[in-house]
Design a protein around this nucleic acid. Structure first.
Lengths: 170, 170
DNA sequence: AGTGATTGTCATCTAAGATGACAATAAGCT
DNA sequence: AGCTTATTGTCATCTTAGATGACAATCACT
């Protein structure tokens, strides 16, 4: 296992979890985006499709909240996915302001491929450590995510901070 | 400890290390930038000062390599820090193309304050887990960072990918 | 009916990253 | 010495991503 004191790595910040998380997080997001690009998708698209596969018919606001992004951003995501015919905006049965977002048939196909990409990405990222350590790492990260109050979120940057619901000035 | 299977969190991606890293990494970087803002610094400035405090007189290219950023970006970092009188460009003793970057007296003062900010940030980020887990988490992250070939890096986004030295086309 | 919040949308502003070009200088080869 | 190639710092530009504010339509509450 690596030297925790980190003076050995030569980098003055390599011993800080905050720094390592920033680095690895940026790398992970960047790398995942690159892997997803051939499918014509960005991480946000993937996240949205994943959320929809768990429950269709939600409003854009609800989806945005669940993903931890601003509803303004959701408009673009839905636009792009709708243009590709992967989802559709239907009339919301209970609220005429809102749209009910639904998956189309072709979406499941693409989602499957994207999930395989995500699995590959995950596997390569964790290739260096053993099974037990993976499990423990994920548990630790989940714990941190909960404690910091991070929303479910998507890969893209945080809107402003955790708990951003509708909007949120500093 | 959190549920590793993650089906319980409600988020379809909460069980993936890649996703958690992206989320937490973005949060950490964002939060750190916000804490650093009152000092008039960005994470890159902090990283540069930290690197310089370990060895002055290096060329911009060398510093950029060590930090994992492109030399074009380094120009801006050095410009801003030089304008504030924290560092200075001297003539490189061995290469007339290059500059030798040195810290000024006022820099140490600010660096100290920035380090305290970084310590606070680190402490709050890890507030949810115990001492042993922190140590283990950092070790795991360091291992991942080494395995993925990440350079020393700074908080800002990766230039293109790990191993970016001078430049690097896809 | 009226008041204030919420939803989806659009326009805009800013910051960040990537890319390509360039002069000055270095390093190596013949 | 001369020639060629690589490197350093710099600048300009292009593309994104993110944040912010505004707005009409609709809802919820009184």
């Amino acid at each position: 296992m690596a030297d925790v004191t980190a003076r050995a790595t030569g980098h003055p910040l390599a011993g800080r979890a905050s720094f390592l998380l920033s680095q690895l997080g940026a790398y992970s997001a960047h790398e995942f985006a690159k892997r997803l690009a051939p499918l014509g998708m960005r991480p946000g698209h993937f996240g949205l499709l994943m959320h929809l596969s768990r429950g269709e018919g939600q409003s854009q606001q609800r989806l945005a909240d669940a993903m931890g992004i601003h509803r303004n951003v959701m408009v673009g995501l839905v636009d792009e996915l709708e243009d590709r015919g992967l989802i559709e905006r239907r009339r919301h049965p209970a609220d005429r302001r809102a749209h009910a977002i639904h998956l189309t048939g072709t979406a499941h196909d693409l989602l499957g491929r994207a999930q395989r990409v995500a699995d590959e990405h995950e596997a390569e990222l964790l290739a260096g450590i053993g099974e037990d350590d993976r499990t423990y790492l994920i548990a630790l990260l989940q714990h941190l995510a909960e404690h910091t109050g991070l929303p479910s979120g998507v890969h893209p940057g945080l809107n402003d901070n955790p708990l951003s619901t509708t909007s949120r000035r500093c």
